[in-house]
Design a protein around this nucleic acid. Structure first.
Lengths: 219, 219
DNA sequence: GCAACTTTGTGAACAAGTGAACAAGCTCGG
DNA sequence: CCGAGCTTGTTCACTTGTTCACAAAGTTGC
């Protein structure tokens, strides 16, 4: 066993890395070779100190007096994020959202490919979604093995979500992206990230409501 | 002007309110009349102290020795979140995602209704998406006025997103839900929340990658 | 009416995240 | 080779968020 201890990266930093990556991709497309932390910060919508601190967790990729080398930094961030290889994903739930995600090509160029879409509903099995054919959920273990899948995307109803999560975990998947409005219970070591559009809308509504209230108060 | 100063609610608390609301709805459906902070915490996937502290920002809705009254607490949270009335939303970008969101009824029972879907692409204008007809983006100001819209949902490409955001702001919308992978620049007072599926996938990938690395290290 | 028990509401300690400030280090012009 | 001018990397004070721990306040059984 190695005595080397990898530096722990704050969650907040990890969440910003993909944003930096995106900004660096834009800079690279524009043919920019160098970028300062302030320029990167401007693009990412954060402040310069934050960018410098975030990047410093991974080593010293900048040059004082100059800035960061765009292609080099991009490569390093890609490496940290595991974007040097492809991540096969499975979508479970072939409804509106699941189908839209499967058809959407936008993740492929970011290193993610949807290799299978599945559903419990027999009437949906066999249907074509983009270039994929909907398979039955029971085949999950084989599909995970076949494509060496490490990421599962849940787009079922809230009621079915926990069941699907259990099946994913059982099949060996340890990373889950959950679109269902449900709190999933998973064993230690399995990571779930929730995407809940209703929650986002409610947060917006909360602030709108408060705005309306304080305006009423002033008048 | 009122001298009354509304207590400031932490962002982290606001983000959890919709989750509590969801859990309380489940409890109510099950016919439960009372719930303790620990039970609520269990459902919401947080700890009891957090639930109590979060709820205490809004007043004392619990009864010591008993817990919280489910219907009453639900009502109070709904009121805080502005869920006592409906929020009309407009979707801009009638692609896969925009159409899927428009057709998806899941937000309606949470107080949000998509009242219009728009696009710049003339070839999409006039097409039917669920019960809505795609209108041209140029009509945005009239649509916002017509339906008294306060929330705009951007489902365009990253390239078009900033332009659409400007138009929304211009039309008087101050709450934006952005699905485009772009950092939007908006004036003070306008609230943007980003939903970026690729970022979520990349965060999952980061952890998968680290797991793979540490496992390789141990061997 | 009192003791035993339960659960809230909150003060205080702790942990995580942010941002200003600045020394260290690099470049470049002369 | 040196000094002026930038920009990074990092420290430190501060803000925000979490968790513990417990008094206060209620309920229940006798």
């Amino acid at each position: 066993m190695s005595t080397f201890r990898r530096r722990v990266i704050p969650d907040a930093t990890i969440a910003r890395l993909p944003i930096y990556q995106r900004c660096l991709m834009e800079l690279e497309e524009d043919g920019r070779k160098k970028a300062s932390s302030e320029q990167l910060a401007e693009l990412a919508g954060v402040n310069g100190a934050k960018v410098r601190k975030d990047l410093s967790y991974f080593g010293t990729y900048g040059t004082r007096g100059v800035g960061y080398d765009v292609p080099h930094l991009l490569h390093e961030i890609r490496r940290e994020l595991g974007m040097t290889h492809d991540w096969p994903c499975v979508i479970i739930g072939a409804g509106n959202l699941g189908s839209a995600l499967a058809k959407f090509g936008g993740f492929v160029d970011r290193g993610f490919s949807v290799v299978a879409i599945m559903d419990v509903d027999q009437s949906k099995v066999g249907h074509q979604v983009g270039s994929l054919t909907v398979r039955h959920e029971d085949e999950l273990p084989e599909v995970v093995k076949e494509f060496d899948i490490s990421i599962g995307i849940i787009t079922t109803t809230a009621a079915a979500a926990q069941d699907v999560a259990d099946q994913l975990v059982e099949a060996g998947v340890r990373s889950i992206l959950n679109f269902a409005p449900a709190t999933l219970d998973v064993p230690y070591g399995v990571l779930v990230r929730d995407v809940d559009v209703a929650i986002e809308l409610q947060i917006l509504a909360f602030h709108e409501e408060r705005r309306a209230l304080s305006e009423a108060e002033i008048v």
